[in-house]
Simulated assay, not measured.
Amino acid sequence: MKWRDWRKIADSVGLEFWFPLPLIGLIFWVGTGWTTAAVLGEAPQIERISVEGETLPEVELVLKGQLISIEAKIYEQRGYTKVDIDTDSPTLKELEFEFPVIDVADVEAELSHTLNLSPAQLRTLVRYQIYD
């Protein structure tokens, strides 16, 4: 067969359209595989910052509303107390604190200092749970 005959067969079957498709697919497959490996294999650059206790800013807490309840969970084995406070404020519904004390008197002192409440006011709201 001559070149003209091959050309006529290729035109009738549409090889001019179908022949480059596998080549384009192969190029796309290799290109996306390389791009995916480059993007996912790259480790994020995270700058580590050490935070010291004295560099943290102090925040004064002013509540506009009433305290509904205070629940103090004392974890004796772990050595801390987690305090959940519910308020009736529409913007601040719940507060959570953790104090590194497990004695009830120390927890009351920390809470009264943090919330600016007298111990008598605090005792009417707080409920304690002690976990081993």
Rank of each mutant, 00 (worst) to 15 (best):
K2D: 12
K2T: 11
W3S: 11
W6M: 06
K8T: 15
K8F: 09
I9F: 03
I9H: 01
A10S: 15
V13E: 13
G14M: 05
L15T: 12
E16R: 05
E16C: 00
F17W: 12
F17E: 09
W18M: 10
F19V: 05
F19G: 02
F19M: 01
P22K: 09
P22G: 13
I24S: 09
I24L: 15
I24K: 07
L26G: 09
F28L: 10
V30N: 12
V30A: 08
T32Y: 03
W34M: 05
T35L: 00
T35M: 04
A37G: 13
A38T: 13
A38H: 08
A38W: 09
L40S: 10
Q45W: 00
I46V: 14
E47K: 08
R48S: 06
R48T: 08
R48Q: 04
I49C: 05
I49F: 07
I49N: 06
S50P: 01
V51N: 11
V51W: 08
V51A: 08
E54N: 08
E54G: 00
T55W: 10
T55F: 09
T55M: 14
P57I: 06
E58C: 04
V59Y: 04
L61C: 05
L61M: 15
V62K: 15
L63D: 02
G65Q: 05
G65M: 02
G65D: 06
Q66P: 00
L67H: 05
I68K: 13
I68P: 02
S69I: 06
I70W: 04
I70L: 06
I70A: 01
E71I: 00
A72I: 01
K73R: 11
Y75E: 11
R78S: 05
K82L: 14
K82P: 00
V83W: 10
D86M: 11
T87E: 01
D88N: 15
D88V: 01
D88Y: 09
D88H: 07
S89Y: 02
P90C: 01
P90E: 04
P90I: 07
T91R: 10
L92M: 14
L92W: 05
L92V: 07
L92R: 08
L92P: 02
E94M: 10
L95H: 15
E96A: 09
F97E: 10
F97M: 13
F97K: 07
P100D: 13
V101S: 13
I102C: 09
D103C: 04
D103K: 15
A105W: 11
V107R: 07
V107I: 15
E108K: 08
E108V: 00
E108I: 02
E108L: 12
S112V: 04
H113P: 00
H113Y: 10
T114A: 12
T114D: 05
N116L: 00
P119T: 14
T124P: 01
R127I: 13
Y128V: 02
Y128G: 03
Q129E: 04
Q129S: 00
